[in-house]
Design a protein around this nucleic acid. Sequence first.
DNA 1: TCATGATATGAATTATAATTCAAAATATGA
DNA 2: TCATATTTTGAATTATAATTCATATCATGA
Lengths: 210, 210
Amino acid sequence: MKNGKPSRKEREYLRHRQEILKVALKLFSEKGFHNVSMHEIAEKSEFAVGTLYKFFSNKEELYRALILEKAEKFHSALMAALEKPGSEMTKIKTWVEAKIKFFMDNLDSVRLYLAETHGASFNIRAGLDTEIKRQYDETLEKIKTIFQIGIKKRFFRKCDPHLLAVALDGISNAFLFEHLDHPGEHPFDADLILNIFFHHVYEKGAGQDA
Amino acid sequence: MKNGKPSRKEREYLRHRQEILKVALKLFSEKGFHNVSMHEIAEKSEFAVGTLYKFFSNKEELYRALILEKAEKFHSALMAALEKPGSEMTKIKTWVEAKIKFFMDNLDSVRLYLAETHGASFNIRAGLDTEIKRQYDETLEKIKTIFQIGIKKRFFRKCDPHLLAVALDGISNAFLFEHLDHPGEHPFDADLILNIFFHHVYEKGAGQDA
DNA sequence: TCATGATATGAATTATAATTCAAAATATGA
DNA sequence: TCATATTTTGAATTATAATTCATATCATGA
């Protein structure tokens, strides 16, 4: 068990834990923290309530684990996209693509995640969302830097890079919300978003490298 | 009482009702529906719990009244802005200004409102937010039409007007969220938003009329 | 196979908060 | 002023859901 190969027991424990998280995620994303009971999670995951408490010391812990785990993955997917080599334009594009992809692959989590990052999180008492906010700010900061460099290189029009970062994040979220509310009605992709956002933020034909 | 001059009694009733709503709004916007108890609302508003139930049949009704009242005002402020005469550019600008103004004047409500319109509303069981969503969609539809006309007139670049509406709404929300989370840190206004959004969505020097 | 330790169970307990309603306070107007 | 109607009150009730823990079930290895 130490830190080599996990035992069968351990693998089973992890599997069970994942199973619970999976069910809880579905329920929370449909109905919100307070409208889901531990009994409901127990029933749907086919464990007894008591068992849930073997895995998580209380309901908030369970929720926290859920959110943090997703946020972690989301964050590293986005950061990885931003680390990829290429022009600033490419980086931004890769980032938007990664964001859309992650969201589309994790629609369940999206509402919860956005609720947390946008502080409309009334689910859980103050302080629990700090880590997520931190990650969020970190990404935003990175984007900002990319804009900064892009502006210096004259790829992008001169403009407060922080505002650009906020704006781009906002546009992409808007499309994702739209998709959540009316799925399929107005299909969209990274290029559409970038087209609307960049059409001449992005000066002359400077870019499209790779 | 019928429908002429409200009696003193009635005015007092209304005043009390407003007082309760005001306190409840503050609490809900700080802590969310489920983290505020009727006792707390009673205490802060200096009524007895029992009295609250004379005004609202239950906690959900109270919340609903609150949200609907605000949403109503918000909606009519925005619609009014869109009805004002002027070029399409002017209408859009007026709308963004109205939106920012309303938000700034009602910061308490903003989180709740955004939570409701963006379906991250886990507060209240399904169906209660339908009316708000309807209003929201109505505004979006109107903006879309304005873009449509603006495109026909060659004020704006050819581009799916619905996407433009979603994008503009998204950008402005993003700035408002930013302001909620870090007030004062990155001041912004309608012109900044429009500058980022339009810089050449809006073709050549076609506009700035009045 | 059986003894022992680990794990899972869910009825019972506890905590919290919504709602009620008999009693008290207040207002009205004869 | 007093009888009556109206309104307010908050302790008591009820509802809901989180959490516990004695008991049952299962796994392991002698």
